[in-house]
Nucleic acid binder design. Sequence first.
DNA 1: CGCTGGTTTGAACTAATTCAAACGACGTGG
DNA 2: CCACGTCGTTTGAATTAGTTCAAACCAGCG
Lengths: 195, 195
Amino acid sequence: MIICEGEPATSIFNVTQGVVKLVRSSSDGRTQIVGFRVPGEFFATPAFERHTVTAVAVTDVQLCRFSRSRLAGLLREYPDLLARLFEMSSAQLLASEDQVFLLGRRTAREKVVTFLLDFSSRTLLGRPEPQRLVHLPMARVDIADFLGLTIETVSRVLSSLVREGLITVGISRSVRFVDLPALMSIAGGPEPVIR
Amino acid sequence: MIICEGEPATSIFNVTQGVVKLVRSSSDGRTQIVGFRVPGEFFATPAFERHTVTAVAVTDVQLCRFSRSRLAGLLREYPDLLARLFEMSSAQLLASEDQVFLLGRRTAREKVVTFLLDFSSRTLLGRPEPQRLVHLPMARVDIADFLGLTIETVSRVLSSLVREGLITVGISRSVRFVDLPALMSIAGGPEPVIR
DNA sequence: CGCTGGTTTGAACTAATTCAAACGACGTGG
DNA sequence: CCACGTCGTTTGAATTAGTTCAAACCAGCG
């Protein structure tokens, strides 16, 4: 666990290696992952006094920490940095709204396929077209917690995708996209805005 | 309709009267409301070239529009304004993550009660304690679209809350909270962070 | 070799949806 | 002023997507 929901926010983090999950949880034990962070991405916005999420390492991670005071100094020194922070926060808002649509209006199958494609395109740094192969570093329980499903449902959907020949699952949580067009048509999603 | 998803973003808006809904929709007709905006709140972030949501007036509205060019000028003139924008965007991100938890991990009943209490506390400008009476300007279909439910489910939940004596519904979409403690315990939600 | 933690599969169940119909408020026109 | 149509809302019955509970499976590891 890197940071914990509710504790005083003293730093922001940049992931350089590995994957981090951001979790919201309620007192009765239900948890919802509000996002994953892969290398190159930030978490723990400095806009609030306390952390709004719990951050947990999904794999071994390497992080770059900026203390709040250091950040304040940098902001004075480089005024453009604030614009960059604003941009990042806006991009995260956009991603969060995508997730809202996903959770509110899409079926289990659509959720899983969308997750596979999204995560795939996010982890191949720079390369534009969707990869045919993606490695999922997180357990089923994390995928389920991200998609608002149970692990059994995630597992069943993956099995059915394999049965229908759309994907194959290899060892160590790797997934190969066999019928990419079909997968993309299942993912569909909100009207694609040029982003 | 005030702005439309995907069209070039030329302005940002501040609501001064009435209520606006922000909608994401997919090509197959499913829609998800990602937020409501009440007087005092902004929408249509200037961070992207194109609008990421469709904004529709729920009631008669009065808006204050800032063109992008005007905003750019203001940003040059008042550097602190950017910090304010960043804050607003962060607050919206927080709200969006709340909604993610709501959609992903809570039951229909919890969703509806949470919505009632949240909307109530948001519309009473300034007054801190939750009001006993709230006016819902939007139709059932909008509540359903916000909570990822159907109108029938929303209606059924409200009926059951009335039957159990937790609320009463008056004319013209007004709702009175009869047993506020019980409602708040149903709403519960993620661990309350001091915000 | 046997244990452990994650994953898959099966069967029963349930929360929420779907389909259908009745209901009620409201505005319009006779 | 009242009948009528419209649109939003409520209620009911049947259906289903996803969950729950349970057991089997499997890979990695001491």
